[in-house]
Amino acid sequence: MPYTELDHTADILIRVRAPTLNGLFSEAARAMFATMFADRSPGGREEAFSLCADDRDELLRDFLSELLFLSEVKGVVFTDAEVDLQGTCLSCTAHGESFDPQRHRGGTEIKGVSFSGLRIINTDEGYQVDILFDV
């Protein structure tokens, strides 16, 4: 599994692993939306955006926060996100489908992406990060 849920009583703590930084960001997005929405499948929706931050940890937090914002205001349930990182900037094209209450409810609403303990580390296999979501 590229991401796993770690034990956290009050909120949701997820460990993401990937061989590349681009992959780590994509997997983190996938983990977040798998938590939020049941029964996702690809659809015809697409949202693109670019971001810069002071460091890559902050960039990951801002990237997930932006997806959270877009999902809510545009009514999109994202299934995957293509990420292209250049230093501490990124461009992203996220794909998904329109929110359908009948199908998508049953997940856990995420209120925010916490910065608590969020630190991207290098591992033998690539990269790893733990992300705590406020739910």
Partner: peptide, 9 residues
């Protein structure tokens, strides 16, 4: 009291 983020809950 609970483990939260920043402050404890």
């Amino acid at each position: 009291i609970h483990w939260g983020y920043g402050f404890p809950i």
